[in-house]
Design a protein around this nucleic acid. Structure first.
Lengths: 186, 186
DNA sequence: GTCTATAGATCGATAGAC
DNA sequence: GTCTATCGATCTATAGAC
């Protein structure tokens, strides 16, 4: 029997798009395992239970987002338009609308009133998202106004992700991103 | 056992807040029945299956929203500020953030990639929501710009409902509503 | 592969209104 | 005696977990 090593990272990367489209409650451990090409029992070798799996998924997404976001924002070499362009690419990766939208928003709405244990990661994600945009805006606006605008942008984008899925039409998320770009670049 | 008549409407009204907070998948027929003070089996006297129950819930919410929305928008006797004020009240009823936010958005994100049968009602809801706001805006903007602004408002509000739940802080939805008010009233 | 709990769903029975 | 609202018991499938 050849031992093919499946890494935890590999499992997580296969599980994330599944959870993003199907949601937490609608994804059974069996389905998730099958999507990874492993036995369900092997899943419990990596994760003690489903809740732990979800937590690791959320913290994986969060870490990835946070690292790349601040790499852009804090870069000394990038111009503002270049930063905006890279932000758009990053958001495109995180918010695959055709693929279920924003896993943070989806998980928040699905679980927040039932299992608060995911709340910390979700809050951190949105806090950093807002902070990142605020940072870009502070080149042209004072701190308070930058914060308010950043919050508005995140709301616009998340609402756009919702409508994009409801109507299966990318224009809503695209419009939100255009508005963001226009305000940041003046 | 005495014969106490429970109406379908009564059942729906008790089930709606439950579904709004807990979501579709997280609300079992037993729990829903218990919340109504009836046996699970009696639920199937009113609804053939869970899917039918959810459909009736969504169409109840949609009908209520649609009727009241256009009663405000199309009123000949109300001034624009009065209309905005009444809109705010209506939205407050539909989007009880402390009670789970927007059942249409929640259900959309939870089910859209799994059970498209709820899609029609959800789309109609958002279409009317946008149309209503567009109607108010057309007193001051041309039709195209009014539509774009209305879409932006809905996205801002829905994103605000999300953040309000994530942070348990009403400021996000309140800010979105303030922005809406300001733009409509100039 | 097996455990246990629970999901959605169905059935038959019963108590009263007509 | 039938019709209507209700309940308790039960079935089958599948969930998470080991």
């Amino acid at each position: 029997m050849p031992k093919i090593k499946t890494s935890k990272e590999e499992v997580l990367s296969k599980v994330i798009p599944m959870l993003r489209t199907r949601g937490v409650q609608n994804s059974s451990m069996s389905e998730l395992a099958k999507a990874c090409g492993i036995q369900k029992s092997h899943f419990y070798y990596y994760f003690n239970n489903k809740e732990e799996l979800i937590k690791e998924v959320l913290s994986t997404v969060y870490s990835y987002f946070k690292y790349n976001l601040f790499k852009i924002i804090d870069s000394a070499s990038l111009s503002l338009p270049e930063k905006v362009e890279k932000m758009k690419l990053l958001m495109g990766k995180i918010f695959k609308a055709s693929d279920g939208g924003c896993i943070m928003a989806n998980t928040a709405l699905e679980t927040i009133h039932l299992n608060p244990s995911y709340g910390k990661e979700i809050q951190s994600f949105f806090t950093d998202f807002i902070k990142g945009l605020q940072g870009l805006l502070e080149q042209k606006y004072d701190s308070d106004e930058a914060l308010m605008l950043a919050e508005q942008m995140v709301q616009d984008i998340e609402g756009g992700i919702l409508l994009t899925q409801v109507y299966n039409d990318l224009k809503y998320i695209n419009n939100a991103v255009s508005r963001m770009e226009k305000i940041i670049l003046n």
